[in-house]
Design a protein around this nucleic acid. Structure first.
Lengths: 235, 235
DNA sequence: CTAATAGTGTCTCTTAGACATTATCTG
DNA sequence: CAGATAATGTCTAAGAGACACTATTAG
């Protein structure tokens, strides 16, 4: 038995700068001349994978190179049925270091996640899920290091951490903890000693995502009540 | 632009009894008359979702009712390209309480996960992923309660816990911990007091998956080195 | 000289984890 | 009466989290 359906892939592309997380959206002219924003997405080309289609499409539509991306992860797959035609979308999380691009063309917008334009319910859900996942993963992996420049200081790291987890932590405790995890290496170019106002700079030891042996433990934002077991509930 | 591809869904159906986890597989006659086992899967019917197609197919092929299933969760979506035709499979984890069925017909087999027959690389990877996820989630949620009968005692719960996490824990500490989480309620039918040899029986307070505020913390089986960031790596 | 910022150590409390005995029921 | 099994508490060690000051540089 054969089954054909239309398959798409979509990406939640996150960037970060100065305490703000940004998502990239693409605009789309609606019949009534208003502007509608969407998550960047593309049909999956025949005999290509969703990821390769997505990479290609992102290059075309928003000029995003694969080298701009520091981390990718599959989120989940959603299905909707419209006019007895099923639409399947495989969703991905993309991270980019710093503000690699921010061209506010008419087609492409980079929005702070606190100031998103109107989105479809589904896109909203995907973004929310991506942020929740990112938040959760920040507590037990080096993932937050992938939205920072390659080299950063502990203050920057902490600020990114606080932005993603939405809670502030004590500086000394944070430093103690993160250093005890052994996932950072000091990056000392010609800088011999650390002095006040000249922070010590670090980089991730591994270019791959690393999981912590002892995660951060903080109350990780209520898991929005209970979900129906028959719905997509990943995590 | 329209894209058509063949879409499938597959399920890793887990059951548990007496310290053993079981997976259900379906057999499939190969050209050379040998028997090949696979994860139960189905094409996704047009204008149906992958889940409803899967439910239907599982009812047909292995006589599995939806009421036999205590928990469902989407795992991830894999894509393979064979003969420039792409195959997309949305994978799910299904849990069932106790040994709801174990008909070892020629078409259907229920195998202890330690004694799986030969499987394709892909199916093996899916099963491994499902087990890893189940393991991880056991440490921070009530998920393990969904492979047990509705009512169970703490010894059973601990045994299931140890089976899934593959390590043994001290009985007193386990009881203290699990009771402190407040996710169990005693189930006292006419049994007034607990006595030795008559264990106190419990059930989950919520019929939905509940996350722990303070997870179990044990070394959770090495995350099999580092994965390529461009590959599907969920959670 | 003032303001801003990086760096650092101690103490307390909670949680994790090791560990042995008693009471009851069954055969 | 012997064997099996459920229940229970204490102590120690590690980690989380609260908390204040000093040194330097920039303006």
């Amino acid at each position: 038995m054969e089954s054909k359906s239309s398959l798409f892939s979509a990406a939640v592309i996150l960037q970060y700068a100065s305490g703000v997380l940004y998502v990239t959206l693409t605009s789309h002219n609606t019949p009534d001349a208003s502007i509608a924003w969407r998550l960047p997405s593309t049909p999956v080309f025949p005999s290509h994978t969703s990821l390769s289609s997505l990479s290609y499409a992102l290059g075309q539509t928003i000029g995003l190179q694969d080298t701009d991306i520091s981390y990718k992860e599959q989120l989940y797959t959603t299905e909707t049925i419209r006019e007895s035609q099923s639409h399947t979308t495989i969703c991905y999380l993309y991270l980019s270091r710093g503000m690699k691009w921010h061209k506010g063309t008419q087609q492409v917008g980079v929005f702070p996640i606190t100031k998103l334009p109107k989105l479809s319910q589904e896109d909203k859900a995907i973004v929310r899920y991506a942020l929740d996942r990112f938040h959760a993963k920040t507590l037990y992996s080096t993932i937050v290091g992938f939205i920072l420049p390659e080299v950063f200081d502990l203050t920057q790291l902490q600020q990114a951490f606080e932005t993603v987890t939405q809670q502030s932590v004590d500086r000394r405790n944070f430093r103690k903890k993160i250093l005890s995890l052994g996932v950072l290496m000091p990056h000392s170019p010609e800088q011999t000693k650390s002095s006040p106002t000249t922070p010590t700079r670090y980089r991730l030891k591994s270019s791959q995502l690393t999981l912590f042996d002892t995660p951060f433990r903080m109350q990780s934002a209520k898991p929005e009540a209970t979900l129906k077991a028959s719905k997509n509930q990943s995590r």
